[in-house]
Computed example of a mutant assay.
Amino acid sequence: MRRIFIFFGLVALFLTAACSSNDEQPAEDSEAKENATNQKAEASGALHTYPLTGVKTDQPVDNRMVGVMVNNHRKARPQTGISKADIVFEVLAEGTITRFLAMYQSETPDVVGPVRSAREYYFELTRGYGGLYIYHGAAHFVNDMIQNRGIEHLDGALHDNDGQLFKRASFRTAPHNSYLQFDGIDDAAQQKGYDMTRSYEPLPFASEEEAASINGDSAERVTIVYSNRPKNIVEYRYNAENGTYTRYSDGTKTVERNGETAITTDNIFIVETPHQVIDDAGRRQVDITSGGDAYLIQKGNVQNVQWENRDGRLIPVKDGDPVPFVPGQTWVNIVPSSPGMEQSVTISNE
């Protein structure tokens, strides 16, 4: 019996020494890390990655992304379906009102809305990510752009209240009551000859170890002032228990209309870029190509970065290298360069 104890003691000593030796080894290069990650994913059966969230799955990821124009007028809140979006872009549409471009792929809600009209920078963002653009109506010159540039799209104005692709809700009045029926998208797309199968290169994402060691200034609360008069203020409040941020509009928690599900995000990417009003209705041109200053906010920390448009996608960059998102959902808030982020964005540890 004593020999057995001695034997296991020697084995334990050997393993301890081996572990200590490994701890003293230099860090693996990126290729070795990638191989290790792939082996781990293969062992768990999760061989595929959702390109907009970085989340692993054992199912093939070949469904096409869908970008939906979602109304953010006060009369349209709370919205439906945005909690399942992989990425949401929030940009001024006209006047002081923002609108959402909700990008879906890893999850698909039954209903999204209310859906509103198109803008150039929204459909160009959708095209840059390789998605199908869905909206409800547009000014004639915007529809001309969509047609002339070959933007693959579905227009709710052509399916208004058909019950298959769009339905009008009785609990709201137009133009705040048009809702996309998600299960009607494939049929409508096939009728227009669009391919709804597509593969994508994932966005840059951090590993678990990298996500756990993100450094930066404290960012417990983020406030973005799109307008004080009339009020249009967005807030994100950090929840350290789950590492996510909860979104608020004008002091009210952003939730799903049905179920009161709070809207949360893992990444907040604030992008500063020039805006220009182009007509009496307050419509804008928004520069989504030139790059500029940005904040990347994750895990209770903020990093000062730059943003670049790389192959149509907005990427955080530092010293020319992409800065990874943490796996999960992302909100991209695009703000005008005048007055700029320093005046319109407040980040604090409260």
Rank of each mutant, 00 (worst) to 15 (best):
D311R: 10
A174P: 05
R257M: 15
K56Q: 06
R2K: 15
D319Y: 01
G300I: 07
F141G: 12
F205A: 05
V326R: 07
M103G: 06
R74G: 06
H73N: 12
I134L: 11
A27R: 05
N333Y: 00
I233Q: 14
Y226G: 08
T37I: 08
I270C: 06
M1A: 15
V255T: 15
G312F: 04
T16R: 01
A211N: 04
E42G: 04
D266H: 06
L52V: 02
V222C: 03
F8S: 09
M145D: 15
T37Y: 07
D58A: 01
D144S: 11
V323C: 05
V335Q: 04
G150D: 04
I270L: 08
R284N: 14
D187N: 13
V70L: 00
A102C: 09
A174K: 04
A93E: 10
T197A: 02
A17S: 14
R74M: 09
T273I: 00
P51E: 01
R257E: 15
P202S: 08
S117H: 07
Q285K: 09
V68D: 03
S207A: 00
S117P: 07
A294M: 08
D23W: 04
S290G: 13
R172A: 13
R310E: 06
R172N: 12
P230C: 04
M65L: 11
C19Q: 14
L52N: 03
I146L: 12
T244M: 10
L101K: 12
H275Y: 15
S337E: 12
L13P: 03
F89C: 06
E235S: 08
I334E: 08
G340K: 06
R284Y: 10
K75I: 00
T96P: 07
S83H: 13
T37Q: 02
D217S: 10
L180S: 06
C19S: 13
N148V: 07
Y50T: 05
M341S: 06
R2L: 14
Q25S: 09
T289S: 04
Q164S: 12
A17W: 05
T108M: 15
K192G: 01
R221M: 13
L15I: 15
D29M: 06
F14L: 15
I315Q: 07
G67C: 12
G81P: 03
Y226M: 11
G216S: 14
A188L: 04
S290N: 14
R168P: 01
V271I: 14
D266M: 03
V70C: 00
V70S: 05
S83V: 13
V11D: 08
I82K: 05
V66A: 05
R119N: 10
A169W: 13
K56R: 11
D58W: 01
